Computed example of a mutant assay.
Amino acid sequence: MKFSGINLLDELQRTELADLRDVFNSRRVKKGAIIFSPDQEENLVFIVEKGRVRIYLGYEDKEFTLGILEPGDLYSTHAGCFVQALEDSSLLTTDVQSVKRCMVEIPLFNRTMVRVLGKILQNSFSVIGGLAFKDIYARLAAYLLKEAQVSGIPVDGGFELELDLTIEQLSQILGATRQTVSTLINNMVREGLVVKRARSKWFVPDLKALEDVVNS
Rank of each mutant, 00 (worst) to 15 (best):
D135S: 07
P38H: 12
D61E: 13
G51H: 02
L117A: 13
L69M: 01
T93D: 06
N186E: 13
L17T: 08
L91R: 01
W202V: 04
L117T: 15
D206Q: 09
E211V: 12
K31T: 11
E162M: 11
D164S: 10
K2D: 09
Q149L: 15
K30M: 07
K100Q: 15
V45D: 04
D135Y: 06
R28Q: 09
D73I: 02
V45N: 04
G80Q: 06
P71F: 02
N215S: 13
K208L: 13
P38A: 14
Q169H: 03
L69P: 00
K134W: 13
E211D: 13
A79S: 11
A141F: 08
V45M: 06
K30L: 06
D156M: 15
L184R: 13
D39Q: 15
T94F: 04
V194P: 00
R115F: 02
Q122C: 05
V96Y: 09
D22R: 09
V204H: 03
A33G: 03
G58E: 15
V204M: 05
E16W: 07
G67I: 01
Y137N: 08
T93W: 02
G158H: 06
R115N: 07
D156C: 14
A85W: 00
R199P: 02
G5E: 06
F24M: 05
G80H: 08
S89H: 01
N186P: 04
R54L: 02
G157I: 09
C81G: 06
V45A: 08
R190L: 14
I167P: 03
E87Q: 07
A33W: 05
F133S: 15
S151Y: 03
D156Y: 15
V96A: 11
I55Q: 08
N187E: 14
G129M: 09
A142G: 10
Q169K: 04
F159L: 05
E41V: 10
Y59G: 13
I128S: 09
A18K: 14
T166M: 00
K100E: 15
L161Y: 00
R21T: 12
R199K: 07
T166F: 00
V99N: 05
L121K: 04
I173E: 03
E87Y: 03
R21V: 10
S26A: 12
R21H: 08
L207A: 10
D73L: 01
D22E: 12
E42H: 13
L210W: 03
I6V: 07
L8M: 08
G72Q: 05
R178I: 11
L92W: 08
G32D: 02
L165Y: 00
G130C: 07
Y137D: 07
S124Q: 10
T183P: 02
T183V: 12
